[in-house]
């Protein structure tokens, strides 16, 4: 088992480096040099050139990339904001708890909702409840998350006045954004659970269990569910990634100062180092979550366990 875990961790390193390289390359395509962006187009060309030289922006592409990588690895330095002149990493860290809580709670809520409703739907296939749930899931997956958020805001904050409009001052502020983020994810999780559950119920070992007189409840909970949930565990990891991405838009909708809002603000202000570092940060986080999911998966799935038994 340790062999598998170590192998999986080692495999993550090149992927992480690749992700950093990818984001760096995309942001490198930004037209205009940092000197002009910081000093403005009215500045003297000598000053701009001097600043570019100081920042190392006049070096060849690969040299710039290695300097950047060196900064991250040696000093945890992700660059300096063009606008505030402060280290980028500090502003990301201060905004991170908001995004993390949003993504975490919505992943938990969507998993609980999605898995529970998916099982009910599969067990009561073609019932009124199943039809209603499938229709609802279909509608939710065709809905833009930000629109759903705005609609919920109109209903619960404006019309009913039950909840605040968002914001991070109270925990109630998180309720609407978390629900918004999790509903879409719950819909896809439900459909996945339903279809894997239906597939599992048709397997021979389920028929065997039933024919030897195992009570239906035990068949569903002990025999079917444990096998059906394996693909669902992987989707929970993807789901977390989706929430991280979705948080970018939802934070803007609900006015929550998280990493996503930082990215959107920085794109508008053309603050390339912040966009680059924040995107990398979320990608790296997602990578670690997927690593965790894979290791968890290995512990649940007896087939992988058996393969690495030593």
């Amino acid at each position: 088992m340790y062999k598998y875990v170590i192998k999986r961790i080692l495999l993550t390193i090149p992927v992480l480096l690749g992700a950093v390289f990818l984001v760096f390359t995309i942001m490198y395509l930004t037209p205009g040099d940092p000197g002009t962006l910081i000093l403005g187009i009215t500045a003297k060309p000598e000053d701009i050139a001097a600043l570019n030289h100081k920042l190392g922006a006049d070096l060849p592409f690969f040299e710039q990339f290695f300097n950047y990588l060196k900064g991250i690895v040696l000093h945890f330095d992700f660059g300096t904001s063009y606008r505030s002149g402060k280290p980028v990493f500090d502003s990301i860290l201060s905004r991170f708890p908001t995004t993390f809580q949003l993504a975490l709670w919505s992943m938990l809520l969507s998993s609980v909702l999605g898995i529970a409703l998916g099982i009910i739907s599969a067990v009561k296939q073609y019932s009124v409840l199943d039809n209603a749930l499938t229709t609802l899931a279909m509608l939710l997956s065709a809905m833009p998350g930000f629109w759903l958020g705005l609609m919920l805001m109109v209903l619960f904050a404006l019309k009913l006045g039950w909840l605040p409009f968002g914001g991070v001052d109270t925990w109630q502020g998180y309720i609407l954004p978390v629900i918004t983020l999790s509903l879409g994810a719950a819909a896809s999780e439900m459909r996945l659970t339903r279809s894997t559950m239906l597939e599992t119920i048709r397997q021979d070992y389920i028929r065997t269990a039933r024919s030897k007189g195992v009570p239906e409840k035990t068949v569903i909970w002990k025999h079917a569910l444990r096998n059906a949930l394996l693909p669902v565990v992987t989707s929970m990891g993807m789901n977390f990634g989706g929430s991280l991405g979705g948080a970018v838009i939802i934070e803007t909708v609900f006015g929550m100062p998280g990493v996503g809002m930082l990215i959107v603000e920085s794109i508008r202000q053309k603050d390339t180092p912040v966009v680059m570092a924040a995107t990398m940060f979320l990608a790296v986080l997602f990578c670690f979550v997927m690593l965790g999911v894979d290791i968890l998966y290995a512990y649940i799935d007896p087939r992988i366990k058996a393969k690495y038994k030593s």
């Binding site: 992927v15 037209p31 990215i263 990578c287």
Partner: peptide, 24 residues
Amino acid sequence: MRLTDVVMTVPPILLSLAVVAALG
């Protein structure tokens, strides 16, 4: 496939945002 793995580490919306941020 390894290159695909790398691109997939960046959640799709973030990837789109990064491209739009760079290109306008």
